[in-house]
Design a protein around this nucleic acid. Structure first.
Lengths: 186, 186
DNA sequence: GGTGACTAGGTGCATGGTCCACTAGTCGCA
DNA sequence: TGCGACTAGTGGACCATGCACCTAGTCACC
């Protein structure tokens, strides 16, 4: 369901092929939603079936045809409806906590290793999001390449907010690891 | 996959029926993993098929038969293998951030409403986890009902760590909301 | 001249997860 | 006497996700 609306959202920026979409996706919403190519192509097809977008086939010399998808008014309406619909509680699914919960079936080193691995992942996340944040902040400051200019200043502010969300949580993860290592590995 | 191991983990505490399992599940790992009844029954069946648990049917007067599932040695081994296997990066999927990202298609009130709804959910989470944390801390202090004593002091410390994980992140969410409201609703 | 990356678009299948409804008896409460 | 909650387990449809695989041409680099 959600993926459908993320794709519609990206199509409001400009018409896109599945290929374009994958790149736009990876360089914008990737940090809070994962999807692979096959999913995006399928989602585009479903969106077209539902009349929320239209396809135009653009032949190219020496490259496969481009199937350019353009959002329709019905698509824009569906997107707005989703954005305005009540926010449901999300149920979490965290494999890492599952392991930790049953960590007493490992020896002490096992738990230490688990926490260390988690720390490495959180540090990677902080690094990646920091880099991305700087990139977006630069775009906000001085323009930057066209493909990055996602819908004006207000849009960029929201985009930055989602990045800071990830950063804040990754840093909390590191702080929680400090605390947990102190208490559990005593 | 993960659900399989969470179920095995719970079966290390004591043999259980699907019904028992659902309750044990909801009162322990629920806050970091969601599963409904039908999933748990199916997972139990899959575990038995794989030889990781055994079933004993216990007839009861005036109630349906209990199918008591007991973990096997193979099950314990599979669980330990999982616990010791390398930690993979988890890809996040956050519908809320998806909405926020495209929030500029709503009016200012829409974004404010979205953030307010998110705040309400985060506050609920903090309240629920705080209550749960106190309950678990009390068990750690003075014993408490048998069903709650999940595998000794070390197990309880890990359980508390998973609860504090949720709490830390819920509080970070509230702090991030403060910041985001200041910056986006200006 | 070969290798690999890029452009472009997919298909098929298995697994996992969600939703909903159904059976069927017990028990307490109003 | 009827309603809802509890105990216990099932069936089936559907949606979402992940992984592998395929076609087919262009281009740069070694």
């Amino acid at each position: 369901m959600v993926l459908r609306y993320l794709v519609l959202g990206l199509l409001t920026i400009r018409p896109m092929t599945g290929y374009d979409l994958k790149r736009a996706f990876d360089s914008s919403v990737r940090h809070f939603w994962a999807a692979d190519r096959s999913q995006l192509y399928r989602t585009l097809a479903a969106i077209v079936d539902a009349g929320l977008a239209e396809v135009e086939v653009v032949p190219q010399e020496s490259y496969p045809d481009r199937k350019v998808h353009t959002i329709t008014d019905a698509g824009r309406e569906a997107l707005r409806d989703w954005l305005a619909s009540p926010l449901e509680p999300e149920d979490s699914r965290e494999p890492f906590l599952g392991r930790l919960f049953f960590g007493d079936l490992l020896d002490g080193d096992g738990v230490a290793g688990l926490l260390a691995a988690r720390r490495a992942l959180a540090e990677e996340t902080v690094a990646a999001l920091t880099a991305e944040e700087e990139r977006v902040a630069a775009v906000l400051a001085d323009g930057g390449p066209d493909a990055d200019r996602v819908r004006g200043t207000r849009g960029l502010a929201l985009r930055l907010a989602t990045l800071r969300h990830g950063l804040a949580h990754a840093r909390t993860e590191l702080a929680w690891l400090d605390e947990t290592e102190r208490e559990v590995l005593a």
